[in-house]
Design a protein around this nucleic acid. Structure first.
Lengths: 225, 225
DNA sequence: CGGTCCGGAGAACAGTCGTTTACCGAGTGA
DNA sequence: TCACTCGGTAAACGACTGTTCTCCGGACCG
């Protein structure tokens, strides 16, 4: 530990191919190691019970070194929100480019959700847990980011012919419903993966049915019946 | 503090009108004081960061006395789940006895949700927060109780003419959707009450619209279109 | 009445925590 | 090359934690 002060991951100075900036690259690597270690610990606990020393220990650095990257555990939590929404954004991007019939879009969207949840389970678990968790700053950050998603989705939905004549307020409510259902489905998948009571196929089928119900309701919204 | 050892609430020995059981009544009162104190603290943090000494301090008893009632903070959390579901059950009971046209039922249900959330905000906040929180035993307890609700709701929904010919599996998915929407609405109301970005009337209107969307989808489920 | 039960109090235990301090040594840039 | 920057270390601080122990005094019961 004494002879390799900055060694966090195994391979020192392998990303320093581009001349200078070794210092900066090393700092960034430690920062990401901190985020990864925290995310690892957060699979079994929530942010408000996460200790600074605990994260430092899991990362392999001294407690005092934590302050070189974040002033707080809360600040680390906010950084984790941004990182997690990177995964979510990638998912939404893939979902948005779709077109075709409704049932096909629903089927592919649900598959995409399942795929991304399996690829970044910790990110989704973190967001689901801390969305209503005990740390205000993190809750606020998550809500702000989700609001951005809703706004984007409103634009998408408004373009669809099925929304012709819908006021923005109603489209927004629909978008919020979609976002909430997506999060619920993601957490259900996580619970299933953690050996819960129902298998994943049933969850995906439920998600498809719920989305189909909403699509039907949307189609008949302006009917008298 | 020294001369009134068991005094937790202000009025000693006022419930001891029925002869014996003074000891038992006092223990129960302290237990409820513990639960109330914990619930009070949990409005600003989550269970996994709640300390035993913290709860004892807020209750007004010595830390060691905590063990006379619960072996753990986790056990207190599970007790809080049961208490909170008392409030939830009262709400569901009132919602279930309704009948009439769909729009009327939706309007009254949403009003009932808002009313009960305002009556027991801490209970709803606790359930929303710990449903995906960091303490496994509490998560499991909440899920088990929610499963009970879903089962009851399946019975109710199956009786309605709108569910004629629906397999139980599909009714169950519908019931889960309703339960999840209810929880989401409740937490949205709580956020609004905490000075968030949107006012409560908008949230209730959104809930009504979402329920109407689902009711419409349900009615046209078996159509070709 | 007298012994027992039991929910409290208080003190002490070893840990862990967040934070601050002083210091080190390698990367950086003139 | 040389002074400087800066991400890392070790050590120490007081505060707080969960848990255990012994003791007390009022409720309980024969």
């Amino acid at each position: 530990m004494r002879d390799a002060p900055g060694e966090v991951t195994g391979d020192p100075a392998d990303t320093a191919g581009s001349g200078g900036g070794v210092r900066q690259a090393r700092k960034l690597r430690t920062r990401q190691a901190l985020l990864a270690a925290a995310l690892r610990l957060l699979e079994r606990q929530s942010l408000s019970s996460l200790g600074l020393r605990e994260v430092a220990r899991e990362t392999g650095i001294a407690p005092a070194a934590f302050y070189r990257h974040f002033p707080d555990i809360t600040a680390l939590g906010v950084a984790l929100v941004e990182e997690s929404f990177g995964s979510l954004r990638a998912m939404v991007r893939e979902i948005r480019v779709q077109d075709g019939d409704v049932d096909g879009m629903i089927a592919r969207s649900v598959d995409l959700i399942a795929h991304h949840v399996h690829e970044h389970p910790a990110h989704f678990r973190f967001l689901a847990r801390e969305r209503h968790g005990g740390v205000e700053a993190v809750r606020t950050a998550i809500r702000a980011e989700l609001d951005g998603f809703v706004r984007d989705l409103v634009v998408d939905l408004s373009r669809q012919p099925a929304s012709a004549g819908w006021p923005t307020g109603e489209v927004r409510i629909l978008a919020e419903l979609y976002v909430n259902l997506t999060i619920l489905t993601a957490t259900a998948i996580l619970d299933a993966a953690a050996g819960a009571h129902r298998d994943e196929q049933a969850i995906l089928e439920a998600a498809r049915m719920q989305l189909r119900l909403i699509a039907l309701g949307r189609r008949h919204w302006r009917d008298g019946d």
